[in-house]
């Protein structure tokens, strides 16, 4: 099939410029998350080095360092010669374990700051959506809520959770907020699946989303805004707790300094 998984709509975000993070880390995170989320499939060829570095907005040198790190993590294989290039390798490890590894790349301060930014975007989007919404706008959100509850695996649930945020921003009638929501999701990526947790956590996330849709429907901007902010804060708080539990719980990460 001719479908190119590397372009179009929300997926532009995978290869959009990585911004002002430490660049090598940012490229590694972006691509590793895309692999964990299934945006890049096993065996898929990445664009050539010059194209990829141009699209990500990093130098070729930075890209090479990032590809080297990805090779060390076993997420990318590079073949030389004719028909060569860099190819995605999806490891056999279960997604949760790989995500735990990914979480170790973030400091708690970075997670807290990302949460602040995300809450600002989501909260504003929800307030505006409550002011600007009409019944037709709610159909997409209600469908996403149903699919979220019915999702069979972590990755699917994370994708639909992300789509709910994007749909909410679109209901605000703001292309900028929508793009920003997509960008933030590309940055946090597959980690959000960890934040959603299991059973109890899921039920409370779904309850919150339902209440949020009601507030938007009723045009209650303040309620919608604070629910949307709470939703983001809850998710980020879970991530930060997981990150702090990291060394004790055996989520694999870099060894702390001074440990043999």
């Amino acid at each position: 099939m001719l479908v190119n998984k590397l372009s179009g709509g929300a997926l532009h975000a995978v290869f959009a410029p990585v911004g002002n993070l430490a660049r090598v880390d940012a490229v590694v995170r972006r691509l590793a998350d895309a692999i964990d989320l299934g945006l890049l499939a096993d065996g898929e060829q990445l664009p050539g080095e010059s194209e990829l570095s141009a699209r990500l907005g990093v130098s070729t040198v930075t890209l090479r360092e990032a590809l080297m790190a990805l090779r060390q993590q076993g997420l990318v294989t590079t073949r030389r010669g004719r028909g060569g290039g860099s190819f995605v390798t999806v490891p056999d490890q279960p997604p949760a374990a790989r995500l735990g590894h990914r979480l170790a790349d973030w400091s708690t301060e970075e997670l807290r700051d990302l949460g602040d930014h995300w809450a600002a975007i989501s909260g504003t989007a929800a307030r505006l959506a409550a002011e600007r919404t009409e019944p037709g706008d709610l159909a997409a959100l209600l469908r996403s809520l149903d699919e979220f509850e019915a999702a069979e695996d972590l990755a699917a649930r994370g994708r639909i959770y992300g789509r709910f945020h994007v749909e909410l921003a679109a209901a605000a009638q703001s292309a900028r907020l929508t793009k920003e929501e997509i960008r933030i999701q590309a940055e946090i990526g597959a980690l959000i699946c960890l934040a959603l947790g299991e059973d109890d956590g899921l039920a409370s996330v779904a309850r919150l989303q339902r209440a949020l849709i009601r507030a938007v429907r009723d045009g209650d901007a303040e309620q919608a805004g604070s629910l949307a902010e709470r939703r983001v804060r809850d998710a980020m708080a879970r991530l930060i707790e997981l990150r702090l539990a990291d060394s004790g719980q055996g989520l694999s990460g870099p060894d702390p300094p001074g440990r043999p």
Binding site: N4, K5, R159
Partner: peptide, 13 residues
């Protein structure tokens, strides 16, 4: 051309 990921296993869209 617009090239979308239309595989429901990988794309929520």
């Amino acid at each position: 051309p617009l090239l979308l990921d239309l595989d429901p296993h990988t794309s929520a869209y």
